[in-house]
Design a protein around this nucleic acid. Structure first.
Lengths: 194, 194
DNA sequence: CACCTTCTTGGTCGATCGTCCAATACGATT
DNA sequence: AATCGTATTGGACGATCGACCAAGAAGGTG
């Protein structure tokens, strides 16, 4: 019947606060998340927030990064799991269509992009996450024979995030329908004609 | 020495409030814009805000729509001014590189996307703006011989907004560098191989 | 047991918020 | 000059905010 230790309870509270922050950022927006709403959602008293985190912004920053990292790592793993580069891009786009642009994960990412323009710390962490994924995708495209893997990877990533943005306005849009148009990016480039 | 009439002063105040809202949304974020900050930026007393506008949200909504409409109409005019479809897309991408993703216009648009997910009125107005531009771009691509003009237009627009998002993290990214990869969208589609 | 560290409570502080309103100012109209 | 409608002022209302802190509770260790 040994209850949780002090350290375990502390970790639990921090995890609940991070989860509550990820939910609330998506629901009401980064700037609307307050310590008291966070505490209520996490089931703790509001005074605890500033015990476990240096500031509200530090909490939101950590919540955003920890929420985005598994998304990008999962997407990178999905690329490796595909049989070939065209299948990898196809699978990536199908995966994108599991998001509506207005779901918690999508909104967390977009909110984080905006917060990053006003928070140099967050911007550096997000740039690192995006650079890692771009390098991963770019390496795959280079192995497929492209001479411009960086540009192709940039286009695919921009198309994905932009489509999520547009899907939040119009749910009829679909990433999978763009697959035929992006498929040629996974084939060896053949000069200016391509 | 005839001074401005009452009606002229009213229009002037409304215009200053709209301009102040567009600036502040970009600077500090949609949810952080307050009536008192707006009044200070517009050079008026804070009580006036609720005389000219029904609510703060109504003011922000109108400011966002009025800020985005000229951007999209200008881009549509740019498409028509180009000599041919490939040139139009090329010019569009070059125009995008005039924005950094962290400039006032870009931030206003991205903030509006997020606000639209929580404001049905704003979402409908933005969807109409985007639909109009997509139809314009799609018609041009159809004239260029594509059998999938809607998908091609969706891809181009998603790539543009997504790249702006990514440029806010990494200023080295460039829309113009993606032009060679998008150029083939302006040529007649030739079946599954393309 | 006493002692230490970590965690939690409950509350205060000054500041800011959106909205509303009575009183006033001012151009236009009669 | 008297009147009307619009524009503006200055302040009020209750609510919420981020941050902070003294006091106490709880588990670990001597």
């Amino acid at each position: 019947m040994a209850g949780p230790t002090n350290a375990e309870r502390g970790r639990e509270v921090r995890a609940r606060l991070i989860a509550a922050a990820q939910e609330l950022i998506a629901e009401i927006g980064w700037n609307a998340v307050s310590t008291r709403l966070l505490a209520e959602r996490a089931g703790i008293r509001s005074g605890l927030v500033h015990y476990h985190f240096e500031s509200l912004q530090a909490l939101l920053r950590q919540a955003a990064v920890e929420g985005m990292r598994p998304l990008l790592e999962g997407a990178a793993a999905g690329l490796d799991a595909a049989p070939d580069p065209p299948g990898a891009v196809e699978a990536l786009l199908v995966e994108v269509d599991r998001y509506t642009g207005a779901d918690p994960a999508s909104l967390l990412v977009i909110e984080a992009y905006l917060a990053a323009t006003r928070d140099p710390d967050l911007r550096d962490r997000m740039r690192e996450l995006m650079d890692d994924f771009r390098a991963h995708l770019s390496a795959m495209l280079a192995r497929a024979g492209r001479t411009d893997p960086e540009e192709a990877a940039t286009l695919i990533m921009a198309a994905i995030d932009g489509l999520l943005l547009h899907k939040s306005l119009d749910a009829r849009l679909s990433a999978a329908r763009l697959a035929p148009l992006l498929r040629h990016l996974t084939r060896p480039s053949n000069g200016a004609a391509q």
